[in-house]
Design a protein around this nucleic acid. Sequence first.
DNA 1: CGCCCGGCTTC
DNA 2: ATCGGAA
DNA 3: TTCCGATGAAGCCGGGCG
Length: 552
Amino acid sequence: MQGSFKDFAETCERVKATSSKIEKVAILAEYLRKLADPDLRIAVTFLTGRAFPKGDPRDPNVGYSTIASIILEITGADELQLYETYKKYGDLGETIFHMLSKRAQAQLLMEPLTLQRVYRAFDKIASISGAKAATMRSTILRGLLLSATPLEAKYIVKVLTSELRIGAIEGLIEEAIASAFGEPLERVRNASLAINDLGEVAVLAKQKQLHNVKVTPLKPAGFMLAETAQTPEEVIEYFKKPVLADFKYDGARAQIHKKSSTIRIFSRRLEEVSAFFPEIVEAVKKISGTLILDGEILPMRDGKPLPFQVLQRRLHRKKITRRLLEEIPLHLFLYDVLYYGDSPVVDKPLAERRQILEQLSLPDNVHLSEMHEVKDVASLRTLFEKSKAEGFEGLVVKDPGSPYILGRRGKHWLKLKKELDTLDVVIVGAEYGHGKRAGILSDYIFAVRDDEGRFRVIGKAYSGLTDEEMLELSERLKSMVIKDLGMRVLVRPEIVIEVAFDGIQKSDRHDSGFALRFPRIKRLRPDKGPDEIDTLKRVEGIYRRQMLYETS
DNA sequence: CGCCCGGCTTC
DNA sequence: ATCGGAA
DNA sequence: TTCCGATGAAGCCGGGCG
């Protein structure tokens, strides 16, 4: 008996219906236990909100607009109906469910969908390229959706849009696998972090083969991540012992694997990105031994780092010309090692791993990160200033005794970034949110004043307010609408907010000519009126000051 | 052929 | 990347 | 503490459109 897609969808519904994590895990475990190996692999992959495993080069390449047109075709609804339904539920899966439920069902006589049939359809959709690719993808997807019940269609769409929204993505799925097959959670986690394919891990767990899984050269392992700290005082207070402070580099995180002359570089999302960095691949070939290294790739000229946008021109390039290689020279800064010689070194303390790095002999464009032992707030502050003055991003402060914890953010590493600046700005527009923010104006478009007192848009922000504040602000804005543009509204410029950011970039996205990096709402400013907000002049000033820092 | 947009990844 | 919410 | 969900700005690619 093959796993039915209906069971999968119904299980998701039950998981979504409870907010208790324990109950979610129990429902999932009971479901997984019943599945045969091939179905188990597929179901677990789908449960992680993916059509295919992490790092798999296949990609269905269908998104919101493709699915929206298919919904219109198969339901015969008009755009207004679709738009109203979407606005109400904020989720394409829910939208197709409600729109299909409204019409008489014609698929009662069809064979029920299986997990494998859905998976094969996804595979087929992903394999299409070239002329008319979009049309052909739509045709296959339409066929699939036509043979699905409304509930099945909902989950087909949810998997394709990676928006399952059942309150379980990875952690709880791991717990469910552990519970289903009687394995310790720790072992499931470690296996998942070592090979990064939960479908495979589930099958290995079922076959009692999990203990054989460990960090292996040429297979991507989960990166260790850092928590954010606000001040040097907080950092010193937290560790209460001498720490190792690394410079923080504003580049692309890279995990570099070397086994004889084979080099593989994996990105933060564990995509294989070796082809984008030929000069780094060549350089790493010159280092001896079998290795897994952790570091950052960034563009530099005359010993100074170049802005992040420059690096972006080297990312995801199909063709890398000689000219591009000369224009944007890349360097690799190493700060950790996960595998050395013939075994993993992730369990050794950081201080020992650093010693391994220090005895490597490195080619010209590969460097060790700048790292210093720090014992007090004053020297931490000095080092932070040094990092910024040299054009770097700040510091990552680490516990010298800590192991390399695969794939987890944790308080063994604390990052201190460039101090933020803030702007007082006025809200001139807003957008309706998605998912749990459906029907709420949750994303705010804001502006500064120019010389003539006109409002110039400089960005959008959504985070920083509590749910309660957001709901209240949403209601107020709804009463201030000047113009309704569907998912977006323009409002009378009256409400002032303080917005924090990490940098200012030149941009033609907004009419101020600037955009903010990592904008977030600091607080509402009910004490200020729109004539008291910050000016474009001040924005230009902050921009110039920052450029001075970056090029000095 | 050049421009725009959706999709995706980087931070 | 960032942030708040939930358990 | 840890996980989850909602979403910012920039640049590249593929494909559609004029």
